[in-house]
Simulated scan of single mutants.
Amino acid sequence: MNGSLPPSAKAVDIKLKRGPAGLGFNIVGGVDQQYVVNDSGIYVSKIKEDGSAAEDGRLQEGDKILEINGVNLENLAHREVVDLFRTAGDDVELKVLKKSSGYTNGPFGSQPDHDASMSSLGLFTIVLAGVAVAAFIYFRGRGYFTDGKWKKR
């Protein structure tokens, strides 16, 4: 999956100028630190406020960085990519695969939509409460619980 792009994927070129705090974003991934299952690519994990990337606005958390200044990042270790960024100069050209909910299978974009449906823990809690109420009614009706106390029969 690392080298192949889905048919709907769109790579964009983004040029950033290094500022006082660098380029203004953090990365994760690499062949030694896979961040997305079956993909050793490099991903943007955080955009820093007031950094070059934030001011530009095009680079987003979850985007996959394919190239730095024309150097393909496929099959590189995380440290190698960090070194490429450090030596890239003041004007850095990135080729970026924009995140899309249909593409990533990792932390960005593939999490279930918890707002749209009840979580399994919530459903379990409701079922458990129903069983407790049914058990209480059953035992009370058989005389095991009267006057606020449990009785032995």
Rank of each mutant, 00 (worst) to 15 (best):
V92E: 06
E55P: 02
D13M: 01
S117I: 14
A54V: 07
S110W: 10
G70C: 12
L123E: 15
K95D: 04
G24H: 02
T104N: 15
A11H: 00
Q111G: 14
K95H: 05
D56R: 02
K95L: 14
S101V: 11
A77I: 09
L94A: 08
S45L: 05
S120A: 15
P6C: 03
K15A: 03
L97Q: 15
K95E: 12
P112D: 14
L23N: 02
I14A: 02
G19Y: 01
V82R: 07
L97G: 13
T104Q: 12
K98G: 07
D90T: 09
K98V: 11
D32H: 06
G3A: 04
A21D: 04
N105E: 11
E74F: 13
I27M: 09
G51Y: 03
P6V: 06
L73W: 00
S119P: 00
I42W: 01
A21F: 00
V96D: 10
E80P: 06
F85E: 03
N38I: 02
L94H: 05
D13T: 03
G62L: 08
D115G: 14
I42C: 10
V37N: 08
H78K: 12
D113N: 15
K99H: 12
S52R: 02
F124Y: 15
K48T: 11
G57P: 13
F124Q: 15
N2E: 09
V12D: 01
F85I: 07
F108V: 11
L128C: 12
E49L: 12
G106L: 09
R79Y: 12
V92L: 08
L128Q: 12
L16F: 00
L94R: 07
G109K: 07
K15G: 01
G51A: 10
